[in-house]
Design a protein around this nucleic acid. Structure first.
Lengths: 192, 192
DNA sequence: TAGGCCATGTAAAAAGTTACATGATTAC
DNA sequence: GTAATCATGTAACTTTTTACATGGCCTA
């Protein structure tokens, strides 16, 4: 958890178009939510902070008769900060936390007959996520398959979706391979 | 983050053998650190809490003449808590945060000539990590390749290492594919 | 008119990082 | 003797989650 990643995630989203806190919250439920996310409570606080620091500016848009949407835009300062952050080189790979893998490390304390259920649950979750991602992908890039024909904005989206898909496919593949090993082991033991 | 994952990570490590806070800190620099980690400052605080809650017990081991190592063991309560946690089914896939992918989503704000450097840096980091993981793998499983011959404890380790390796290989593969796209795009543009 | 979504916030608590602090042991 | 590593802790701060809280809009 390092130096204000949420700040830059928000600046990045606002560099595409002006958004409200609610819009930003929604974005984290789509493609980019595969690699960073935050709850609305954190986002509203961060927006206030960014406003204070003059990285963003605010204006009101009416949504209906009474409902005020607070829209945010990047300021010059915000644009510069984003630019600089985008060019930073990471110095090390951060731990990508994964509770299932953590549990599996403690395999010896899981009764053998319970293990397949754990794998199957994970397989279900990951398969659902992959389906969601593929749906998104074909919605945005279904017709135009060749990434060379995409503009820079679409290409960012393309990379992130293709990355998420490849991550989930790889995860599912590893789950299947590992589950096979477990099944063979269980079969072995019942022969004895 | 969520429901005391560090607690269970520590209980899990202690179920293999008694350890000190320092030992636990070291473990997070090895295989399991690929999927969960914590700093010593957090670990010592959590150990005190677990001791208060009677999930673990403490004894002193002398390391040298003056140096006292505080060793921790699971209590019956701790063992039960670990058991129950290991059988819990995750209800959703948590965001696996990845700053590089986040940056890449904002690609349109990165000057085209800077992009390859960003990819190459990531490629370097991931390649180094993969080398480290493969070293670990061959150290522990080099001779005995067949996972069917491993006992439950080794198998947990095997799964976690094989998962980390497959994750990094997949990441590198995606980086290379994406970098190719970027190069082709840059070449295209300079032709115009 | 009711339920789901749009929309924005605050407060408290938990989790995690960074910095400060200290001292022993080991191997060269 | 000195540097790396072993060993343990606290304090301040940042980040993230959970819960509380409110009200408008839209569609069936």
């Amino acid at each position: 958890m390092s130096r204000r990643i949420l700040k830059y995630a928000i600046l990045g989203l606002l560099s595409k178009e002006d958004m409200s806190g609610y819009d930003i919250t929604s974005e984290f439920k789509k493609a980019i939510g595969q690699f960073w996310s935050a709850k609305h409570s954190q986002i509203y606080v961060e927006l206030k902070k960014l406003l204070d620091e003059d990285s963003i500016s605010q204006y009101i848009e009416m949504a209906g008769v009474k409902l005020e949407k607070k829209m945010y835009s990047l300021t010059t300062k915000g644009k510069e900060e984003l630019q600089n952050w985008l060019l930073e080189l990471d110095e090390n790979v951060e731990t990508e936390k994964d509770i299932f893998a953590l549990r599996l490390y403690f395999l010896k304390d899981i009764p053998a007959e319970e293990i397949p259920a754990l794998f199957n649950n994970q397989l279900k979750l990951r398969t659902e996520k992959l389906a969601f991602l593929k749906e998104q992908f074909s919605f945005y890039f279904g017709v135009e398959k060749n990434p060379l024909n995409l503009d820079a904005e679409e290409l960012g989206h393309y990379f992130v979706l293709s990355k998420a898909i490849s991550r989930e496919e790889n995860y599912i593949c590893w789950l299947n391979k590992s589950l096979e090993i477990i099944k063979n082991k269980n079969a072995d033991n019942s022969l004895r």
